[in-house]
Amino acid sequence: MEVQPEAEPRNEEQMDCKRECAEDEWKSWQRGQVRNTLHLVSAVAQWILLLACLIYLGIDFLQPSTPQSIEVPWTHIRYSGKSIKGVAINLTAERGSIQIRNGSIMIPCDGLYLVSLNGSIYPEEKLLKLTLKNTQKSTSSVLWIQTVQSSDDTVNLTTVFFLFRDDYVTLCTSSNANISGLSLSLVLVSPPEETLCRS
């Protein structure tokens, strides 16, 4: 009869141990389930994000590219001939999209223009001034001026001017002269905006 009281505590200890083991297994299984659920949610979120990126890139790729509505205005002029005192040299465009009317370059857009000018001048008098002028409706201003003193002088200019769309650029001499191989280029270097361009 003394053996039975010892067996009961052992049975209780074994039961407690089994219960603790079962609880530990249950908690471990629950943690595993939570971990698996988090992995599944993370994987689904990554796939959804990847699919959204692919759809965005696909839509962007399938959209037609918008063509440039305005080409960059430019002109290239070559001139050889005679200039008359105080009268605009009768320039005509060799190539380019900028129009020339009555020897004046019609500026189509507001912006910065790169201007390049070179050539040889043979003045009939000892002193000659070659002037690049800007005319706006009723006013006229000098953009650039060079004095030619010898009988055969070369003109060189490379610069940038800010011009407006209503401007007319002309080239003239202060006395009669013969001009040889004059080259004048004008290119808009700032991006053209439709609202600032001649229609």
Rank of each mutant, 00 (worst) to 15 (best):
M1L: 12
E2Q: 09
Q4A: 09
P5F: 03
P9E: 13
M15D: 00
M15P: 00
D16Y: 04
C17G: 11
R19L: 13
E20H: 04
C21Q: 12
C21P: 00
C21I: 02
R31I: 01
G32V: 07
V34P: 00
R35I: 11
N36K: 11
T37F: 07
H39L: 13
L40S: 13
V41D: 08
W47T: 14
L49T: 14
C53D: 06
C53Y: 07
L54V: 12
I55T: 14
L57I: 06
F61E: 07
I70E: 02
V72D: 01
V72S: 06
P73A: 13
T75D: 01
I77C: 05
R78I: 06
S80Q: 06
G81N: 09
K82E: 09
S83F: 01
I84F: 08
G86S: 11
V87L: 11
V87R: 11
A88S: 13
A88R: 13
T92Q: 14
A93K: 13
E94Q: 12
R95M: 05
G96T: 07
I98K: 03
I98A: 04
I100Y: 04
I100H: 02
I100T: 11
N102H: 15
G103R: 09
S104F: 15
M106Y: 01
D110S: 11
G111W: 04
L114G: 03
L114N: 13
S116H: 08
S116E: 12
I121Q: 01
I121T: 09
P123G: 01
E124K: 15
E124T: 14
E124F: 10
E124R: 15
L127N: 10
L127I: 10
K129G: 01
K129I: 06
L130W: 07
L130M: 15
T131P: 00
T131C: 06
T131E: 10
T135M: 08
T135E: 12
Q136M: 11
K137G: 01
K137M: 10
S138A: 12
T139C: 02
S140M: 07
S140V: 07
S140E: 15
V142K: 11
V142P: 01
V142G: 01
V142C: 03
T147P: 00
V148W: 00
Q149L: 14
S150R: 10
S151W: 02
D152E: 13
T154K: 13
T154E: 14
V155F: 04
V155D: 05
L157D: 00
L157H: 05
T158Q: 15
T158M: 12
T159G: 03
T159L: 09
V160Y: 05
F161D: 05
R165A: 06
R165S: 11
D166Q: 12
D166M: 04
D166R: 15
Y168W: 07
V169Y: 02
V169W: 01
T173L: 03
S175A: 14
N176D: 15
A177S: 14
N178P: 00
N178Y: 12
I179R: 05
S180T: 13
S180N: 13
S180M: 09
G181L: 06
L182E: 00
S185M: 07
L186P: 04
V187Q: 11
L188M: 13
L188V: 04
P191W: 05
E193W: 07
L196M: 10
C197I: 08
S199N: 09
